[in-house]
Design a protein around this nucleic acid. Structure first.
Length: 579
RNA sequence: UACCCCGUGGUGUAAUGGUAGCACAAGUGCCUUUGGCGCACUUAGUCAAGGUUCGAAUCCUUGCGGGGUAGCCA
């Protein structure tokens, strides 16, 4: 696993703080908050938290939650804590903790010194469990896992009481203490909340709140052999931290009565309000940690930071910017409707951001050799090129032109279709920033018939690409001088999956993996300046797309990732024509 | 067929009882030394039926459709 912190530390530091605007998604949640504010609830405070479990890498769905939680706190002058929800040591690792912190910072949010861990509350949580037992709200149950399942009943039928349900508080206290002391084997007993085995809500049928589990915790080591369950730990952690609005995803909606029940039955300092919203689903990808982990473990991708992954690490390596992701999160909104967001919207946000800030360069992905017959053998022109037409303060640079150049294979057609205004026999095009030239001949490989070389004559009067006589030339194509070019590897990424909505398909999601999601071009020709591009730096290769210098890049062999192609209305009409 | 939640153009959302709007996508045209960007325009929507109301996407009822929930996971 490669974690290149330099990618963003060098490039983005100080440039990626969210503005008031992008950090302010408006939604039904803010409606609730503003109502609370109006009623002076919580003394006018708005405190949130982002509470990931450190059992995997953060993905774009988490970004939505991060923007919501941190953005809400920012909007209402509150605070947002980072809390690692680490109550299940069997799945959690320090590597994940580190990556989570890295990703939240990279996205542009700051938890100051409020880096909290549910595990920091284990002692307090234990105390609250004791209080609950004393109040008759919890009991130690000796049923095993299968028995508990059986006693729980079904969705459509009530459960039945455990035979251990009516133990005395004294006995429960003694047993719970001995559970902690390690007197009983894993799985032999649990602490359960004493609620209602007939509840239509299965989560209220005496849920387990503590289990015996001998696993080394990444922070508390072997100090504990009992661990609190989510439902017990989360609401109390919220209360301990003074959270006012505990925002989570829809699948916890049915847990809310339990969240409230626990807080109502112990003496916590406050009672946060749980509010649920719909998690993000993105077309042509998967968003579950389990599936992403599978892709990594089965080496179907190169790692958590494979640029095809919807993880923050993957998107970072791909070249997506924090600003683009934040803007995306604002654009998609927050509701309770289970939706499927079009990947095209994310790509739009990426292009929109990159268009403003990415310097333009010339690079040829699939080179075709062009000889300018009437250009002097050993001459080199240094031509002025605009770095960014969207930002003239980015200035200009010099690019060298000479007798032999490379153009894109797509930019020449021996038998051009109608409306094709690139290079073709007898046709004139503009080499961007350089000269107008007319195609005079084609050289083919006698054996295969493949076009291997084009011949042109240029018009010396058109230096810089201008036409003193005012003639209009519609086609402008990019090029790179052969003798000045730097050879590079370019990785083109496609969609991870072949179907937009894999949840609607039957069978294993892996059978819908796009076999062509990665195409590596090893013979690309780029303008010289790209030889010393820094890892993580972003460019627009004119007429091609946006590209990001990969950590694998070396001065002698630069490597670039295509972040997203430019929109291509010609490809669209061509495709339409073929139909 | 238990309980809970959700249904607004193709997609994502706004309208909090008072003109159904925005963005993406799709399409057309203009502009253009990036077939990019930008600009203008077009297509297209309140799940259904009743009810309340001067007036309903919004409130009520029923139906239909979608999602969630039966870990000692979170």
């Amino acid at each position: 696993m490669i974690v290149n912190h330099d990618i963003f530390n060098s490039f983005w530091k100080g440039k990626n703080m969210p503005s008031e605007n992008t950090a302010s998604p408006s939604s039904f949640i803010h409606g609730i908050i503003e109502e609370d504010l109006k009623n002076s609830k919580n003394n006018g405070k708005v405190n949130t938290r982002f509470p990931p479990e450190p059992n995997g890498y953060l993905h774009i769905g988490h970004a939505k939650s991060i923007c919501l939680n941190f953005g809400t706190a920012l909007k209402y002058n509150g605070i947002c804590n980072l809390r690692l929800d680490d109550t299940n040591p069997s799945k959690e690792e320090i590597e994940y903790v580190d990556s989570i912190k890295t990703d939240v910072k990279w996205l542009g949010f700051d938890w100051d010194n409020r880096e909290y861990y549910a595990s920091d509350y284990f002692e307090q949580l234990y105390g609250y469990a004791v209080e609950l037992i004393k109040k008759g709200g919890a009991y130690v149950c000796d049923l095993n896992a299968e028995e508990i399942k059986e006693y729980r009943g079904k969705l459509t039928e009530a459960g039945k009481d455990s035979i251990y349900r009516n133990r005395s508080a004294q006995e429960n206290l003694d047993l719970f203490q001995r559970m902690r002391a390690g007197e009983f084997p894993d799985g032999s007993r649990t602490l359960r909340a004493k609620i209602d085995m007939n509840s239509p809500n299965i989560h209220m049928r005496d849920p387990v709140i503590y289990r015996i589990l001998r696993a080394t915790h990444h922070r508390t080591g072997d100090k504990w052999c009992i661990y609190p369950m989510y439902d017990f730990a989360h609401c109390i952690s919220d209360a301990i931290e003074g959270i006012t609005h505990s925002i989570c995803t829809l699948e916890f909606e049915i847990h809310r009565p339990l969240y409230d029940w626990i807080l109502d039955h112990i003496s916590v300092p406050c009672h946060p309000q749980q509010i649920e919203f719909a998690r993000l689903n993105l077309s042509y990808t998967v968003m579950s940690k389990r599936k992403l982990l599978q892709l990594v473990q089965e080496q179907l991708v190169s790692g958590w930071d494979d640029p095809r992954m919807p993880t923050m690490a993957g998107m970072r390596r791909r070249g997506y910017t924090p600003e683009a992701i934040r803007n995306f999160c604002e654009t998609i909104g927050v509701t309770k409707y289970n939706s499927l967001t079009d990947m095209a919207l994310l790509e739009h946000c990426v292009r929109d951001d990159l268009n403003k800030k990415a310097p333009r360069v010339l690079g040829v992905l699939r080179p075709l050799k062009v000889v300018i017959d009437n250009y002097p053998e050993n001459q080199t022109d240094q031509l002025d090129a605009v770095n960014n037409p969207e930002d003239l303060s980015a200035g200009t640079r010099k690019i060298p032109f000479s007798k032999i150049i490379y153009i894109e294979q797509d930019d020449f057609k021996e038998n051009p279709p109608k409306d094709y205004f690139r290079l073709a026999p007898g046709k004139e095009v503009r080499f961007r920033y350089a000269y107008l030239a007319t195609c005079t001949g084609v050289v083919k490989d006698p054996a295969s018939g493949q076009i291997i070389e084009i011949h042109c004559n240029y018009d010396p009067a058109t230096r810089g690409g201008n036409t003193p006589d005012g003639r209009k030339v519609k086609g402008t194509i990019h090029w790179v001088s052969a003798k000045h070019a730097v050879d590079a590897e370019i990785r083109l990424y496609g969609r991870l999956l072949t179907v937009a909505d894999v949840s609607a398909e039957e069978g294993d999601f892996k059978s819908f993996l796009n076999p062509n999601s990665l195409e590596v071009l090893k013979n690309c020709k780029l303008e010289r300046s790209l030889a010393d591009a820094k890892s993580g730096s972003l460019f627009q290769f004119e007429r091609q797309g946006y590209f990001c210098c990969d950590p694998d890049s070396k001065p002698e062999k630069p490597v670039f990732n295509r972040i997203v192609p430019l929109k291509d209305s010609w490809a669209k009409t061509e495709k339409g024509r073929k139909k």
